[in-house]
Nucleic acid binder design. Structure first.
Length: 345
DNA sequence: AACCCCAGCAACCGCGCCTGG
DNA sequence: ACCAGGCGCGGTTGCTGGGGT
């Protein structure tokens, strides 16, 4: 059974809005408000438009104090941080940027910011690529993405690792999830080294854990962290995976060096990472162990994440920080680890 | 000058959630 | 508890202008 249409599709105008339509809608809402019913609004205004279309036009264009274009560096940073933290929840991101609409931010992200951050070359800088050649950039983007990850999930993963690498070139090297096949003793050594650094940093900084946007996290959210996760690995060396077949050079079979970024990976490396997703079940098990201790952890039965809060509001700073590990569940174990790490940053 | 290609953007579409009856 | 209508959101589409060939 199909869904009932919200309006009579045959009798509504579609496409770009004329200045007259804009003026009518604006004048009406300025005087009477929306009346809490967008569906009935077009009739009252005298527009042959769908109520949803009116709502969109008002929210994205006619509403007072709307800013268009000219995103600042600071806004870029906020968008980037929030996208990595909470994903494509544009309305939440827009709420952090007064005067910006979710649609505007979404478009800005998709057309400019994403390419800028992922280091994709724009036309003109490095020559053009003909669409006739399927091997050139822009035509095989999908083929580079591991099939088991959604493009947005992979994108967030890439961005997170890229930003993390910028902040600390060795953080990737120390990430056991990125080095799943590292020889067990070496991995153990690395984990212990991470903990030592963590302790040293904590002593020298003697400051609360910071979120991506630099705000202190609530204590209960810092109680479960990558640190606990790492300590559990060190305490239980048997949990560290055995190297399965092949020549182990201490760095698995990956040819990705320390400090490399996902953005620098070629498609072979991307597919390698894809293959390794399936080899990380033991991390999943660890993750589940942690989940048992977390009342706030969303159920893993595929419940709709959209209904989860996904973030919490800090009324003192007006910022949103990530509280929802489930938002990274689409990454599997890798995503969960990333979420834990984001709490430490 | 003409054509082609692509980035940027506005608008549409459909799904899920919320709320009132 | 259930249903229907409205709302809000995120993904997608399609148009347009500009730059390169």
């Amino acid at each position: 059974m199909g869904r009932a249409p919200c309006c009579d599709k045959a009798n509504v105008k579609k496409g770009p809005w004329s200045p007259e339509e804009d003026a009518k809608l604006k004048a009406y809402i300025d005087e009477y408000g929306t009346g809490g019913n967008w569906i009935a609004l077009p009739q009252k205004v005298g527009l042959k438009r769908c109520g949803k279309s009116c709502r969109l036009r008002w929210l994205n264009y006619l509403r007072p104090n709307i800013k268009h274009g000219g995103f600042t560096e600071e806004e870029d940073n906020i968008i980037c941080s929030l996208y990595i933290s909470i994903g494509s929840r544009w309305s939440i991101i827009a709420a952090q940027l007064p005067g910006r609409t979710d649609n505007d931010i979404k478009n800005y992200w998709n057309t400019r910011l994403k390419n800028k951050l992922l280091g994709r070359k724009r036309r003109g800088n490095a020559g053009r690529f003909s669409s006739k050649d399927p091997n050139k950039e822009g035509n095989n983007e999908d083929s580079q993405s591991p099939s088991s990850l959604s493009s947005s999930a992979l994108e967030r993963l890439q961005l997170h690792i890229q930003l993390q690498t910028l902040q600390d070139p060795f953080s990737l090297y120390n990430n056991p999830v990125v080095w799943p096949k590292m020889h067990a003793p070496l991995l153990r050594e690395k984990l212990e080294q991470s903990l030592r650094l963590l302790d040293e940093n904590r002593q020298s900084l003697n400051s609360p854990v910071q979120s991506l946007s630099g705000n202190s996290l609530p204590a209960d959210l810092t109680s479960i962290s990558l640190e606990d996760y790492t300590r559990s690995l060190v305490a239980e060396p048997s949990l560290v995976p055995e190297v399965r077949g092949g020549v182990d050079d201490g760095f698995g079979t990956s040819n990705m060096g320390a400090g490399a970024t996902m953005a620098n990976c070629d498609e072979n490396e991307a597919s390698l990472i894809d293959q390794r997703m399936g080899e990380l079940n033991y991390y999943d098990n660890l993750g589940n162990g942690l989940k048992d201790n977390l009342a706030w952890w969303p159920s893993g039965d595929g419940a709709d994440m959209k209904s989860e809060s996904g973030s919490s509001w800090d009324s003192s700073t007006g910022n949103v920080f990530p509280t929802d590990p489930g938002m990274f569940q689409e990454f599997g174990a890798v995503g969960e680890s990333i979420w834990h790490q984001s709490l430490l940053e």
